[in-house]
Deep mutational scan, measured.
Amino acid sequence: MEVRTIKVFTTVDNINLHTQVVDMSMTYGQQFGPTYLDGADVTKIKPHNSHEGKTFYVLPNDDTLRVEAFEYYHTTDPSFLGRYMSALNHTKKWKYPQVNGLTSIKWADNNCYLATALLTLQQIELKFNPPALQDAYYRARAGEAANFCALILAYCNKTVGELGDVRETMSYLFQHANLDSCKRVLNVVCKTCGQQQTTLKGVEAVMYMGTLSYEQFKKGVQIPCTCGKQATKYLVQQESPFVMMSAPPAQYELKHGTFTCASEYTGNYQCGHYKHITSKETLYCIDGALLTKSSEYKGPITDVFYKENSYTTTIK
């Protein structure tokens, strides 16, 4: 009895394709271990004539594949690729409408935090270190965002349907971005203890939790000093293409032309909904596939993004 075979390709990165001759009487799992086709788990399936010449994702289970996976995804987590594939199996079914010149995501599976993050990423200057993220990001900007969303979920250790947080998501993504040249110098002034300067680099240099107003941050924000008295913390120097200011959701007025974009969060910790506000020729609110415009805006804002380049204080 002759062994019926077909020729397929296996890959971990969709760049390096490895030619395989597979036995049609055995499952993919018996031949390769966990195997995925377009995100779908085909591990328990036997090869079919229609699979001839198709590319299958496999887990990096030998040295060659491990090197290829690390170079593309910059992670050695053995569960990463499987999590990416199972997320992709959902995100490829989502709709990605162009809204006001940006790629958004039609609401499904509690994905409003991903839509808000995706919209924000198209408006701030950011370059990702893992080629996987950078490639998928370019495709997302062009309207094909399924891979990018699935990668975000995998890097953030999230599953489809789980509630997510924009600030946490951005923080994970910033860790995989090139923020080497970003720098922030802060000064804390206390009447009792004097003053202390701190220099922050990388992710810490672009994120701040405690106030939404970048102007206020430049002037000074009140913080408790270690001595128990009130101290003032203010920005001395900022070198970065953008800054992200966050605070627990509270009524906040966004003035046209003073910011790049913002995240609105309605609801409580267990259950809520994100919308995205962007400042173009007027203010726009993007909620999944829905767009509304207004000249002014007041609502429960939790993150505001500002364009920056270089700032030095005039406070002496």
Results as ranks from 00 to 15, higher is better:
Val3Cys: 14
Arg4Lys: 14
Ile6Val: 14
Lys7Thr: 13
Thr10Asp: 02
Ile15Glu: 08
Asn16Glu: 07
His18Ser: 06
Thr19Cys: 08
Gln20Arg: 11
Val21Phe: 15
Val22Gly: 09
Val22Gln: 05
Asp23Cys: 14
Met24Ile: 14
Ser25Tyr: 12
Met26Gln: 09
Thr27His: 10
Tyr28Leu: 13
Phe32Arg: 07
Tyr36Cys: 06
Tyr36Ile: 04
Asp38Tyr: 08
Gly39Pro: 04
Val42Arg: 06
Ile45Met: 13
Lys46Thr: 11
Phe56Gly: 02
Tyr57Val: 11
Asn61Arg: 11
Asp62Leu: 08
Asp63Met: 10
Arg66Trp: 08
Phe70Cys: 12
Tyr73Asp: 05
Tyr73Arg: 03
Thr75Ala: 13
Ser79Ala: 13
Tyr84His: 00
Tyr84Gln: 00
Ser86Ala: 15
Tyr96Pro: 04
Gln98Gly: 06
Asn100Leu: 06
Ser104His: 04
Lys106Asp: 15
Lys106His: 15
Trp107Arg: 06
Cys112Tyr: 03
Ala115Cys: 12
Leu118Gly: 01
Leu118Pro: 03
Leu121Gly: 03
Gln122Met: 05
Glu125Arg: 07
Glu125Ile: 04
Glu125Asn: 10
Lys127Thr: 13
Asn129Ile: 08
Leu133Ala: 01
Ala136Ser: 10
Ala140Lys: 03
Arg141Pro: 04
Ala142Glu: 15
Ala142Met: 13
Ala142Leu: 13
Ala145Asp: 02
Asn147Pro: 14
Ala150Glu: 05
Ile152Glu: 03
Tyr155Lys: 05
Lys158Leu: 03
Thr159Ser: 15
Thr159Gln: 11
Gly164Phe: 04
Arg167Met: 00
Met170Asp: 01
Ser171Trp: 15
Tyr172Leu: 14
Phe174Gln: 03
His176Asp: 00
Arg184Asn: 04
Leu186Thr: 14
Lys191Gly: 13
Gln196Asn: 10
Gln196Pro: 02
Glu204Lys: 12
Ala205Ile: 00
Thr211Trp: 01
Tyr214Cys: 03
Tyr214Ala: 01
Gln216Phe: 05
Phe217Trp: 08
Lys218Leu: 05
Val221Thr: 08
Gln222Ile: 10
Pro224Arg: 14
Cys225Pro: 02
Gln230Ser: 12
Lys233Cys: 14
Glu239Leu: 10
Met244Tyr: 03
Ala247Asp: 05
Gly257Asn: 09
Phe259Leu: 01
Cys261Lys: 00
Ala262Asn: 05
Glu264Trp: 03
Glu264Asp: 06
Tyr265Ser: 00
Gln270Trp: 06
His276Ala: 01
Lys280Thr: 10
Glu281Gln: 06
Glu281His: 05
Thr282Pro: 00
Leu283Ile: 15
Ile286Trp: 00
Gly288Pro: 02
Gly288Val: 01
Thr292Met: 10
Tyr297Val: 05
Lys298Phe: 09
Asp303Glu: 02
Val304Phe: 02
Phe305Arg: 01
Lys307Gly: 08
Thr313Arg: 15
Thr314Ser: 10
